[in-house]
């Protein structure tokens, strides 16, 4: 846990925003544009002048040491921090040119476009079927039971869970193993058919086989969706992403093409992190 003074110190040490991030913050065909984004939890300054772009068809891997603000950044992209009592966000995030923090944007509608998979699996204490069907139901995506069945089945199929749970769709989602729960949560998110999927360490509870499945899924989904994935695994970042953003103590340190970041990091902090000297 970082104290507020320390977070501010780092910002001061680095001499403020202008030279961060290094690398290439802009994307050729931007879907999400982030400008001067700051976030606080009470006195804790969790995000500090973050600004970069995420392009269409892109898989962006967000890396950085624990507590550096990766989850916070994700939660700013679907305005989930609105629901946190003492959280405050300033700055601008545009989704296809529209500022999602402007008064005219309904966060409820926004979250249907920007789906999220959480760091800890959090299935509803309902049946597996109802878990996946929930989003489709509240948004009225299916006009009858057959269509809903279709949505549920394809979503489960895509995360590789259908085979395991086909016979027990009526059992509670909370009865599944940790890794199955996480895949259920991914299925639940893609069932709503969002434009952007935010994934907060989706594979942290998974075995290598399930991880490989999720990575394949990300590859497959990247054709249709913009994906932002937080990961602590450099290998995973290298495997699934086109671009990587490295964060440290609330600041975005470096952004760039995945290959370039891992072969030729520009910033000392990035180099230290990916070579395992910090974090």
């Amino acid at each position: 846990m970082r104290t507020p003074s320390k977070a501010n110190d780092v910002a001061a040490d680095a001499g403020g925003g202008p030279e961060f991030p290094v690398g290439d913050p802009s994307a050729p065909d931007p879907c999400i544009q982030i400008r001067d984004l700051n976030a606080w939890y009470g006195d804790i300054h969790a995000l500090c002048d973050v600004g970069f772009e995420i392009g269409h068809g892109e898989v962006l891997a967000l890396i950085g040491p624990s507590g550096c603000g990766k989850t916070t950044l994700l939660r700013c992209l679907n305005r989930l921090n609105d629901a946190v009592e003492d959280a405050r966000v300033t700055g601008e995030v545009t989704l296809d040119g529209q500022n999602i923090y402007s008064g005219s944007v309904d966060p409820v509608a926004l979250r249907a476009r920007v789906g999220m998979v959480f760091q800890k699996p959090n299935p509803f204490p309902k049946s597996i079927y109802d878990n996946v069907a929930y989003g489709a139901r509240i948004h009225g995506l299916a006009s009858d039971r057959a269509e809903l069945d279709e949505i549920v089945h394809t979503s489960l199929e895509r995360v590789g869970l259908l085979k395991e749970v086909r016979a027990r769709l009526d059992e509670p989602g909370t009865d599944l193993s940790g890794g199955q729960q996480q895949r259920l949560c991914i299925a639940r998110t893609i069932a709503v058919d969002p434009e952007v999927i935010l994934m907060d360490e989706p594979c942290s509870a998974l075995d290598p086989i399930a991880t490989a499945k999720i990575e394949d899924l990300i590859d497959e989904l990247s054709a249709e969706y913009v994906i932002v994935i937080v990961t602590h695994s450099m290998q995973q970042a290298a495997r699934v992403s086109n671009r990587v953003a490295y964060m440290n103590q609330g600041q975005l340190v470096e952004v760039g093409e995945t290959d370039r970041i891992f072969t030729n990091p520009l910033h000392k902090l990035t180099e230290d992190y990916i070579t395992g000297r910090i974090g």
Binding site: V108, A109, A112, Y134, G135, I138, R188
Partner: peptide, 11 residues
């Protein structure tokens, strides 16, 4: 986490 899961789906 249940509230956020639901909010995150657009409820």
């Amino acid at each position: 986490s249940i509230r956020e899961a639901s909010l995150g789906l657009g409820a």
